[in-house]
């Protein structure tokens, strides 16, 4: 293999603008799933219901968009679904003290079955639902910026949810590290007794955190059903709720960390699509790749970081 072939492969699969755009798009639902995991994790709650919340958000977004003929109504429908399932999750696990893992599993199984049932009973079809009446999100070209060479192509031309996600990453960081409520949330997560003795309502903060996680997950669903595709497909969350937990851990519970770790998933996912088109590698292997690579990489880096921390601690002592 001479140099020019390698360069060709690199530019086709890695260093070209279409690929970077693909990476950013495919990372978006994972970023949102990551924020869903992050906001509950920082409040000291183990929320494994992200997967189910994504599915419900995706389904209700499609339904609302179909019936009202508007993508923004679709967004609203998804958000309301996220709020409701978040509130139910919080009610049962925090107020009625149902076991949080069991509750999370219950929501995931329920969402899986409920969306299949609803697709059949509401739209009369099985497996998924597409229809011209479903209005998805179109690409937004940002004036002026779109005309800047390279940067314009990188920053412009995504759907609304992508920009919303970038905004939410920054907003979550600002919230966590600069606002009183962010401090309270982190205190609740790290030492609830400390928060409680300072008059902070631990239960209320956790409740709100779970509801916020519902919204983040639902947005991931909205992106999948109205941004990425225009329609609902059974099990379309495809494990992103769990990948969200992985990127949160790897991102160290920080919004920017979540964003960057999600890019890894987005990149491998994008690569999968390219390879799928070329039919070099069996398709099943290709669709496994993003998950395997992401988990392997995150595990490797997490272990390395833990070891480094341990070494630092030993040195100090």
């Amino acid at each position: 293999m001479d140099g020019s072939v390698l360069l060709d492969i690199l530019s086709r699969y890695v260093f070209n603008i279409a690929n970077i755009q693909g990476m950013l798009r495919l990372a978006t639902p994972v970023v949102l799933a990551g924020l869903c995991a992050l906001i509950t994790d920082r409040a000291g709650i183990l929320n494994i219901a992200g997967e189910g919340m994504i599915l419900l958000g995706a389904w209700f977004a499609v339904a609302a968009s179909y019936f009202f003929g508007s993508s923004m109504m679709g967004l609203l429908g998804g958000i309301v679904a996220g709020l409701v399932v978040g509130a139910l999750f919080a009610l049962f696990s925090l107020k009625f003290r149902a076991h949080i893992i069991v509750m999370g599993i219950a929501i995931n199984i329920f969402a899986d079955a409920a969306t299949i049932f609803l697709t059949r009973s509401v739209f009369g079809v099985a497996g998924g639902f597409t229809d011209p009446k479903i209005v998805g999100f179109g690409a937004i070209e940002i004036p002026f910026i779109k005309d800047i060479p390279i940067l314009g192509e990188l920053l412009s031309g995504y759907t609304f949810i992508v920009y919303l996600t970038w905004f939410l990453v920054a907003a979550t960081a600002l919230f966590l590290y600069r606002t009183p409520w962010g401090f309270h949330l982190r205190a609740v997560g790290e030492n609830p007794e400390a928060a409680e003795t300072m008059g902070i309502n631990v239960q209320r903060i956790r409740f709100l955190a779970v509801m916020a996680s519902g919204v983040f997950a639902a947005l991931a669903g909205v992106y999948l059903s109205l941004g990425h595709l225009q329609g609902y497909v059974d099990k379309m969350a495809a494990g992103r709720g769990f990948i969200g937990m992985a990127v949160n851990t790897f991102g160290g519970g920080a919004p920017l960390g979540v964003f960057l770790s999600s890019l890894l998933f987005g990149f491998v996912d994008m690569l999968g699509f390219r390879l799928q088109a070329e039919r070099i590698i069996p398709i099943y292997f290709v669709s496994m790749m993003p998950y395997i690579v992401t988990l392997a990489a995150l595990t490797y880096f997490t272990i390395r970081r833990e070891n480094a921390r341990k070494r630092a601690a030993t040195k100090k002592a």
């Binding site: 401090f183 309270h184 982190r186 205190a187 790290e190 030492n191 007794e193 400390a194 928060a195 409680e196 003795t197 300072m198 008059g199 902070i200």
Partner: peptide
Amino acid sequence: KLVPSFTVTENITLGG
């Protein structure tokens, strides 16, 4: 009742 990862200032002002 302190939050280990917070600074002294953040701990003292917590809740106020």
